[in-house]
Amino acid sequence: MIKLDHVSKIYANNTVALDDVSLNFAEGELIILKGVSGSGKSTILSLIAGLLKPTQGDVVVDAKHISKLPDHFCSQYRRDNIGFIFQKYNLIPLLSVKENIALPLVPLNLDEDVLHVKLEIVMKMFRIEHKKDMKVKNLSGGEQQRTAIARANVNDPKIILADEPTANLDEKLSLEFIQILKALKSSHKTIIVATHDPLFFELEFVDRVVEINNGKLVCS
Protein backbone atom coordinates (compact mmCIF):
# COMPACT_ATOMS: atom_id res chain seq x y z
CA MET A 1 0.00 0.00 0.00
CA ILE A 2 2.84 2.36 0.80
CA LYS A 3 5.95 2.04 -1.22
CA LEU A 4 9.20 3.96 -1.09
CA ASP A 5 11.13 3.19 -4.24
CA HIS A 6 14.85 4.00 -4.09
CA VAL A 7 14.15 7.23 -2.33
CA SER A 8 16.88 9.71 -1.51
CA LYS A 9 16.46 13.06 0.18
CA ILE A 10 19.13 15.71 0.31
CA TYR A 11 18.24 18.94 2.05
CA ALA A 12 19.16 22.40 0.85
CA ASN A 13 22.17 22.52 3.15
CA ASN A 14 23.46 19.35 1.53
CA THR A 15 22.71 17.05 4.46
CA VAL A 16 21.82 13.61 3.25
CA ALA A 17 18.73 12.58 5.17
CA LEU A 18 17.98 9.43 3.21
CA ASP A 19 20.14 7.45 0.89
CA ASP A 20 18.49 5.05 -1.55
CA VAL A 21 15.84 3.70 0.78
CA SER A 22 13.28 1.22 -0.46
CA LEU A 23 10.43 0.15 1.81
CA ASN A 24 7.07 -1.47 1.52
CA PHE A 25 4.22 -1.21 3.98
CA ALA A 26 1.09 -3.29 3.71
CA GLU A 27 -2.34 -2.09 4.63
CA GLY A 28 -3.25 -2.43 8.29
CA GLU A 29 0.34 -2.92 9.41
CA LEU A 30 1.76 -1.31 12.51
CA ILE A 31 5.38 -0.53 11.86
CA ILE A 32 7.96 0.98 14.17
CA LEU A 33 10.73 2.99 12.56
CA LYS A 34 13.62 2.64 14.91
CA GLY A 35 16.55 4.98 14.94
CA VAL A 36 18.27 7.77 16.84
CA SER A 37 17.41 11.42 16.17
CA GLY A 38 18.75 12.55 12.84
CA SER A 39 18.74 9.04 11.40
CA GLY A 40 16.16 9.97 8.80
CA LYS A 41 13.05 8.36 10.23
CA SER A 42 11.18 11.67 10.51
CA THR A 43 12.08 12.33 6.90
CA ILE A 44 10.44 9.07 5.88
CA LEU A 45 7.27 10.09 7.67
CA SER A 46 7.29 13.50 6.00
CA LEU A 47 7.75 11.87 2.63
CA ILE A 48 4.83 9.52 3.14
CA ALA A 49 2.70 12.43 4.30
CA GLY A 50 3.60 14.36 1.18
CA LEU A 51 5.16 17.14 3.22
CA LEU A 52 8.41 16.65 1.39
CA LYS A 53 9.31 15.65 -2.10
CA PRO A 54 12.20 13.23 -2.57
CA THR A 55 15.32 14.34 -4.37
CA GLN A 56 15.36 11.00 -6.07
CA GLY A 57 13.02 8.08 -6.26
CA ASP A 58 9.32 7.70 -5.92
CA VAL A 59 6.80 7.53 -3.12
CA VAL A 60 3.68 5.61 -4.05
CA VAL A 61 0.66 5.35 -1.79
CA ASP A 62 -2.34 3.37 -2.91
CA ALA A 63 -1.01 3.41 -6.47
CA LYS A 64 -0.78 7.24 -6.38
CA HIS A 65 2.59 8.74 -7.08
CA ILE A 66 2.33 11.33 -4.40
CA SER A 67 5.85 12.58 -4.89
CA LYS A 68 4.79 13.79 -8.31
CA LEU A 69 1.50 15.38 -7.30
CA PRO A 70 1.16 19.16 -7.51
CA ASP A 71 0.73 20.91 -4.19
CA HIS A 72 -3.00 21.23 -4.54
CA PHE A 73 -3.52 17.52 -4.81
CA CYS A 74 -0.80 16.67 -2.39
CA SER A 75 -2.47 18.65 0.35
CA GLN A 76 -5.77 17.12 -0.52
CA TYR A 77 -4.27 13.64 -0.38
CA ARG A 78 -2.82 14.50 3.00
CA ARG A 79 -6.12 15.79 4.24
CA ASP A 80 -8.03 12.76 3.09
CA ASN A 81 -5.61 10.00 3.94
CA ILE A 82 -3.10 11.00 6.56
CA GLY A 83 -3.33 11.64 10.26
CA PHE A 84 -0.08 13.02 11.59
CA ILE A 85 0.88 13.12 15.24
CA PHE A 86 3.82 15.44 15.55
CA GLN A 87 6.59 15.27 18.03
CA LYS A 88 5.74 18.64 19.51
CA TYR A 89 1.99 18.07 18.91
CA ASN A 90 1.87 21.32 16.94
CA LEU A 91 -1.44 22.37 18.37
CA ILE A 92 -2.45 26.01 18.20
CA PRO A 93 -2.27 27.18 21.80
CA LEU A 94 -4.84 29.96 21.71
CA LEU A 95 -7.54 27.84 20.18
CA SER A 96 -9.74 25.48 22.15
CA VAL A 97 -9.50 21.71 22.03
CA LYS A 98 -12.55 21.49 19.83
CA GLU A 99 -11.25 24.13 17.42
CA ASN A 100 -7.89 22.47 17.14
CA ILE A 101 -9.38 19.11 16.38
CA ALA A 102 -11.68 20.65 13.77
CA LEU A 103 -8.88 22.37 11.88
CA PRO A 104 -8.24 19.72 9.22
CA LEU A 105 -11.91 19.81 8.31
CA VAL A 106 -12.29 23.58 8.04
CA PRO A 107 -11.51 23.92 4.30
CA LEU A 108 -14.11 21.28 3.53
CA ASN A 109 -16.94 23.63 4.47
CA LEU A 110 -19.00 20.87 5.99
CA ASP A 111 -22.45 21.28 7.43
CA GLU A 112 -22.50 22.31 11.07
CA ASP A 113 -24.19 19.07 12.13
CA VAL A 114 -21.88 16.79 10.17
CA LEU A 115 -18.86 18.54 11.61
CA HIS A 116 -20.28 18.34 15.10
CA VAL A 117 -20.86 14.60 14.81
CA LYS A 118 -17.36 13.93 13.57
CA LEU A 119 -15.89 15.95 16.41
CA GLU A 120 -17.97 14.22 19.04
CA ILE A 121 -16.96 10.78 17.84
CA VAL A 122 -13.30 11.49 17.94
CA MET A 123 -13.37 13.46 21.20
CA LYS A 124 -15.18 10.63 22.93
CA MET A 125 -12.82 8.06 21.51
CA PHE A 126 -9.83 9.78 23.03
CA ARG A 127 -11.55 10.87 26.22
CA ILE A 128 -11.05 14.58 25.73
CA GLU A 129 -14.62 15.81 25.28
CA HIS A 130 -14.88 17.10 28.84
CA LYS A 131 -12.22 19.66 28.04
CA LYS A 132 -13.46 20.58 24.60
CA ASP A 133 -13.82 24.31 25.20
CA MET A 134 -10.63 24.76 27.12
CA LYS A 135 -7.71 26.51 25.47
CA VAL A 136 -4.96 24.11 24.58
CA LYS A 137 -2.29 26.06 26.41
CA ASN A 138 -4.09 25.28 29.65
CA LEU A 139 -4.06 21.53 29.17
CA SER A 140 -1.75 19.02 30.74
CA GLY A 141 0.78 17.12 28.66
CA GLY A 142 -1.33 14.01 28.43
CA GLU A 143 -4.44 15.96 27.48
CA GLN A 144 -2.53 17.78 24.77
CA GLN A 145 -1.35 14.48 23.42
CA ARG A 146 -4.85 13.10 23.30
CA THR A 147 -5.99 16.26 21.52
CA ALA A 148 -3.24 15.83 18.97
CA ILE A 149 -4.24 12.22 18.43
CA ALA A 150 -7.87 13.19 18.15
CA ARG A 151 -6.99 15.77 15.53
CA ALA A 152 -5.02 13.19 13.59
CA ASN A 153 -8.08 10.96 13.53
CA VAL A 154 -10.87 13.39 12.87
CA ASN A 155 -10.72 12.98 9.11
CA ASP A 156 -10.79 9.17 9.50
CA PRO A 157 -7.48 8.66 7.70
CA LYS A 158 -6.18 5.42 6.31
CA ILE A 159 -2.67 6.08 7.47
CA ILE A 160 -1.53 7.33 10.82
CA LEU A 161 1.97 8.65 11.26
CA ALA A 162 3.47 9.40 14.66
CA ASP A 163 6.79 11.15 15.10
CA GLU A 164 8.44 10.47 18.47
CA PRO A 165 5.07 10.43 20.24
CA THR A 166 6.42 9.63 23.70
CA ALA A 167 9.48 11.87 23.64
CA ASN A 168 7.97 14.36 26.09
CA LEU A 169 5.94 11.99 28.22
CA ASP A 170 6.53 10.19 31.46
CA GLU A 171 6.17 6.44 31.67
CA LYS A 172 2.53 6.45 32.71
CA LEU A 173 1.48 8.56 29.78
CA SER A 174 3.71 6.59 27.44
CA LEU A 175 1.89 3.45 28.44
CA GLU A 176 -1.41 5.20 27.91
CA PHE A 177 -0.31 6.07 24.43
CA ILE A 178 0.55 2.48 23.73
CA GLN A 179 -2.96 1.49 24.76
CA ILE A 180 -4.36 4.02 22.29
CA LEU A 181 -2.05 2.63 19.65
CA LYS A 182 -3.42 -0.85 20.28
CA ALA A 183 -6.95 0.44 19.83
CA LEU A 184 -6.02 2.16 16.60
CA LYS A 185 -4.38 -0.97 15.29
CA SER A 186 -7.59 -2.88 15.70
CA SER A 187 -9.32 -0.41 13.40
CA HIS A 188 -7.21 -1.60 10.46
CA LYS A 189 -5.41 1.61 9.91
CA THR A 190 -1.85 1.54 8.67
CA ILE A 191 0.24 2.98 11.46
CA ILE A 192 3.87 4.01 11.31
CA VAL A 193 5.60 5.20 14.45
CA ALA A 194 9.06 6.75 14.31
CA THR A 195 10.68 6.50 17.70
CA HIS A 196 13.80 5.60 19.59
CA ASP A 197 11.83 4.73 22.72
CA PRO A 198 12.57 1.08 23.55
CA LEU A 199 9.06 0.66 24.96
CA PHE A 200 7.85 0.17 21.42
CA PHE A 201 10.31 -2.36 20.17
CA GLU A 202 9.00 -5.38 22.06
CA LEU A 203 5.24 -4.86 21.74
CA GLU A 204 3.46 -7.98 20.57
CA PHE A 205 0.90 -6.16 18.38
CA VAL A 206 3.64 -4.54 16.33
CA ASP A 207 4.00 -6.12 12.92
CA ARG A 208 7.47 -4.97 12.04
CA VAL A 209 10.38 -2.98 13.34
CA VAL A 210 12.46 -1.26 10.69
CA GLU A 211 15.76 0.27 11.69
CA ILE A 212 17.23 3.36 10.04
CA ASN A 213 20.73 4.54 10.61
CA ASN A 214 22.34 7.55 8.94
CA GLY A 215 19.76 7.63 6.20
CA LYS A 216 20.13 4.01 5.30
CA LEU A 217 18.11 0.95 6.13
CA VAL A 218 19.73 -1.42 8.53
CA CYS A 219 19.12 -4.90 7.33
CA SER A 220 17.72 -7.11 10.01
Binding site: T55, P70, D71
Partner: peptide, 13 residues
Protein backbone atom coordinates in the same frame (compact mmCIF):
# COMPACT_ATOMS: atom_id res chain seq x y z
CA UNK B 1 12.04 17.94 -9.44
CA UNK B 2 14.55 20.66 -8.74
CA UNK B 3 14.10 23.51 -6.32
CA UNK B 4 13.60 25.82 -9.27
CA UNK B 5 10.53 23.86 -10.31
CA UNK B 6 9.01 24.02 -6.87
CA UNK B 7 9.62 27.73 -6.77
CA UNK B 8 7.93 28.14 -10.12
CA UNK B 9 5.00 26.10 -8.95
CA UNK B 10 4.57 28.36 -5.97
CA UNK B 11 4.87 31.42 -8.15
CA UNK B 12 2.10 30.12 -10.36
CA UNK B 13 -0.21 30.53 -7.38
Amino acid sequence: MSTLQYKLQKQSY
